[in-house]
Design a protein around this nucleic acid. Structure first.
Lengths: 143, 143
DNA sequence: CTAGGAGTTCAAGTCGACTCGAAGTCAACG
DNA sequence: CGTTGACTTCGAGTCGACTTGAACTCCTAG
């Protein structure tokens, strides 16, 4: 049913689309981050399907949101095993989603702290009282 | 003017307040992350002022938001040098603030991608059509 | 007086995720 | 035919931020 009409992509093309260096794409492959095998041409060079290229892009998101390679690998293993373990895959995704949500919250908290300090400097610099900002002194340290 | 009435804290107490292991507190000190010297008692043990403890807590926020130790060090050096470089300190903080804001945005983008995948699983599992979720196939891979 | 627990210093090890380098292959161009 | 330049494999190196460990000191409670 699925006709073989997809354009196949070289590692360079996938690299461009994903922003991942070719070295990293090979590294990911060897770490088992692709469910199916990546085809090769006669000369042994990698040929990626569109799906695989897309998955690589998803991987960049998983990674940039802090999913460790072994966990991506675990997910991919489930996919490789075929239907029947969707709940487990779902659990991995949902858990990671929650972890990322927490990360966002934590970052925003840190952002608030930093912003408070930024504001103190802004005001002091505007008021010309910046020299009161000293050491871990009263103004600077306490907020 | 500043009377010496502050209660001084042991490394253990600071560790509790900040969540940083004592090892890490010593490590930070040796990396120059404190503007002033940390006092010692007769037995050579560290005594932190409230200000220093507070700064340690700020450090946890700077770190958790990805400010590298060398950059914190740079900021602290400016503080150590005393008044006159507030603009430079301000620049460091403001830049980091922006970096964190970008981080938040990126994370939220990743979160969106992940959430899309989560939703696909939710729906498929609810509809009992989960076995259509296969490999990098049409349903799973494309979104 | 001794045992426990917190503290000290300094050096070395760990961890994850790349990142780089060497040595070689291959297709196309001038 | 020679030289780019993108590709291949394999193994080793890097980086930042801890983290661990060994060997030691000190105070307090029993």
């Amino acid at each position: 049913m699925t006709t073989e009409t997809e354009a196949l992509l070289s590692i360079g093309e996938v690299s461009e689309r994903t922003g991942l260096p070719t070295h990293t794409l090979r590294f990911y492959e060897q770490e088992g981050l692709f469910a199916g095998p990546i085809r090769r041409n006669a000369a042994g060079r990698r040929l990626y399907t569109e799906e695989q290229a897309h998955w690589a892009r998803v991987c960049t998101k998983l990674r940039s949101s802090g999913m460790p390679l072994p966990e991506i690998h675990r997910y991919v293993d489930l996919v490789r095993q075929g239907p029947g373990n969707e709940e487990e895959r779902f659990a991995i995704l949902r858990e990671h989603e929650q972890k990322v949500a927490r990360q966002v919250a934590d970052l925003q908290e840190a952002l608030a702290v930093i912003h408070t300090k930024v504001e103190i400097y802004e005001e002091a610099l505007a008021a010309g009282t910046a020299d009161e900002l000293w050491r871990d002194g009263p103004t600077c340290g306490r907020s």
